[in-house]
Nucleic acid binder design. Structure first.
Lengths: 113, 113
DNA sequence: TTCCTTAATGCTGGCATCGTCATAAGATTG
DNA sequence: CAATCTTATGACGATGCCAGCATTAAGGAA
């Protein structure tokens, strides 16, 4: 039933994929996204929630914003950040589902042996 | 309709997610996975297909194997590697779909302006 | 204007990872 | 056994990214 192949993505596409995944390869960024998923927050609230330094948070948010995972708007002197789409949640759910399957399989192996 | 929140994943889970995404943050590894998706191959074939050095390929395959994305079996003196599940394809498809949506949105912005 | 608050950015040290060379480990053949 | 072929690994230079300090930029209040 396997169609024997999807085709090989172009090197440029692979490069874009890897850059995107690299964004998610940092716990700090994932954490920020998770917090923002609970609702819009300003930087001060993110500092309070995570304990990270102001400049660190600002940099990470900058990267996430350039990738379109996060948006922001001014509120006076504050910047209110907001999670922009569901993609990261979807990706994490897929990964988690697979982790679970893998552990269950290992469990069965142990019970047989 | 948004349930106003899924809950916040634990730091350990975030760490595992990020480690997994880090695996996919390297074009070389994505490329190896894509080649292996076409069917089982030995290391020599992967060298031929990618132009990477033998030791480089061996290292990357080692990482992918520890994560369960790739499996291998001996055939005499050769090692035949094989892609192990569809997760990576699924993740890439989701990312690609979103990239497309984003570009289409930008296109519309341009036409309005 | 000046002062204060908040967020973004230049610069830097430290650490992790990539990629290569050389070598070791494992398997097969004679 | 030795010789050879294939893959894995130790060591190392180069590169890139993180995380913090200090500074700058931007807005609002007096």
């Amino acid at each position: 039933m396997t169609p024997m192949s999807g085709d090989m993505p172009s090197p440029q596409l692979l490069e874009e994929f890897s850059q995107f995944f690299r964004l998610l390869s940092e716990p700090a960024r994932l954490q920020l996204i998770c917090h923002l998923k609970q609702g819009p927050m300003d930087v001060a609230a993110l500092i309070e929630a995570t304990g990270f330094s102001q400049s660190h948070i600002s940099r990470q948010l900058g990267q996430l914003q350039r990738a379109g995972l996060v948006s922001c708007e001014r509120d006076g002197v504050r910047m209110i950040y907001q999670a922009q789409d569901e993609l990261v949640s979807d990706l994490c759910n897929l990964v988690q589902k697979r982790m679970k399957q893998r552990l269950e399989a290992q469990l069965e192996q142990l019970q047989i042996a």
